[in-house]
Amino acid sequence: MKKEVPIAITFILAVFYVVANYFTGSPFLATVKDRLDRWYLVVAAWAVLVGSINLCQIHGRRISQKREGWVFSVWLLICLFGMMFFGIFIAKNPSHPGWTFMYNQLIAPMNATVYSTIVFYIGSAAYRAFRVRSPEASVLLFTALIMMLGRVPLGAMLLGGNQALSQMADWILNVPNAAGMRGIQIGACLGGVATALRIALGIERGHLGGTGE
């Protein structure tokens, strides 16, 4: 019941899903597959609080141990529960003006700012990591430079209006970049299929851990 049944469920569902995708003429298989697709989303939706519970555990521990910055943890939990409470019990639907205000004036701009500041960190990290130390690092840096200069007017300005950098960037994107990415994608697909097979056949059991047994 504790291990064998869940593994059997994984196996049966995986086999059923594969069979249903190859025997598309069967209305029974198609109906069950559609239902499973819907159930997949419903299960994921009802498990949505796992992330919030983890946040509460981490920050709750910080608060109870009065670790450095615990006041910020209190504030984080206030924001978390405040937003949840406001959305579910006050706004009640995503078109509520208060809800759209929270998203448009706070969450979206903060999201954009957080992601935009990453540019400084990846810039300094790249400087340390890719300093022209090896031929490979030089190739990477040179390509990145062409891509960056080829995408902005500065590139053409440096060459006196010539669009060569932009054309080079396009060519790099369409030929060597696509070739490298395709090789990686094919390799990743084979890896994904192998992992899926291992999970379906019960060889991979890492996901059964974490329950304290």
Partner: peptide, 11 residues
């Protein structure tokens, strides 16, 4: 940001 975004996702 983290608190609001997590709460937003749940709601």
């Amino acid at each position: 940001y983290v608190g609001l975004f997590a709460g937003y996702g749940v709601a």
